[in-house]
């Protein structure tokens, strides 16, 4: 698998490393994907890197690569953001993968080997829910709201009604709420706030987890929040050019 720039892979790693310590990457002709629970079993993370993300991609036989995210991150940090990354996994020798970083002028090339692990990852079946509410908004705006309100209180309540979407945090000595209306003024798609809902709903989540989730803002300029009563929220970052996505399912808090 060859990526034109290591930046995408670095951002993906940064988006999951606080939540997932080790995980299986499933490789098949469609691309590379992973699904993992955080240690607290409160968030399910799904990453999909489609063939479209790669400069070249070939997968003769489906393979599962057990990867420890810590050393993987250390190796990736050795790659310049603009350097080409080639990941090779041999079917005959499945105890490691090779990573090669090359910069454009090829005046520099670095090669790494990463030992693979045997991880008995249980896959969770995520039902295709029809959502009671969906919000799409700039990922940077969602990140700022979450980071700001997480300072106010550890519980983040998200309410969707005809007023728009209201984010509320409650602490011991302060409380804050921010209301977003669907934006029709701005024309740039990536700046718009769109809200659709079938019935009003209000749910509460752990702000520290939502903070970790917003790190994926580096991957996509927009984020989609999908909510349904008594269901984990799905926070989805779609990468452009159908390159793939990262989805977080965060379990709610019970009233």
């Amino acid at each position: 698998a060859r990526l034109p720039r290591s930046a995408v892979l670095k951002k993906i790693l940064d988006s999951v490393k606080d939540l997932v310590k080790e995980t299986n990457w499933d490789c098949n002709e469609e691309g590379m994907s992973m699904q993992a629970l955080d240690t607290g079993r409160i968030v399910l993370v799904e990453v999909m890197l489609r063939e479209a993300a790669f400069e070249s991609y070939a997968c003769e036989v489906p393979m599962t690569l057990g990867i420890d995210m810590e050393p993987f991150g250390k190796v990736l940090r050795c790659a310049g953001g603009d350097e080409k990354v080639t990941i090779k996994a041999s079917r005959n020798d499945q105890d490691h993968i090779e990573l090669v970083f090359e910069n454009e002028e090829k005046e520099r090339m670095s090669a790494f080997e990463l030992k693979l692990m045997d991880i008995d990852g249980e896959h969770m079946a995520v039902p295709d829910a029809e959502w009671g509410a969906e919000i799409s908004m700039p990922s940077s705006e969602f990140k700022k709201i979450v980071m700001d309100l997480a300072e106010i209180g550890s519980d983040l309540t998200i309410a969707v009604s005809k007023l728009g979407v209201t984010f509320t945090a409650q602490g011991n000595n302060c409380k804050g709420s921010m209301v977003l209306q669907p934006s029709t003024a701005v024309d740039k798609k990536s700046e718009q706030v769109a809200i659709s809902f079938t019935e009003p709903l209000e749910m509460t989540f752990a702000a520290p987890y939502m903070k970790m989730i917003t790190k994926a803002a580096a991957l996509s300029s927009t984020v989609t929040l999908s909510l349904d009563e008594a269901c984990p929220i799905c926070v989805r970052y779609e990468m452009e050019d159908n390159a793939g996505h990262i989805k977080y399912y965060l379990a709610p808090k019970e009233d």
Binding site: R41, E122, M124, T204, Y249, A251, K253, E254, D255
Partner: peptide, 14 residues
């Protein structure tokens, strides 16, 4: 204080 629920309450192993 609202109680944190776990993912396994909503999603079953595949």
């Amino acid at each position: 204080k609202p109680r944190q629920l776990l993912i396994s309450r909503f999603f079953a192993p595949a």
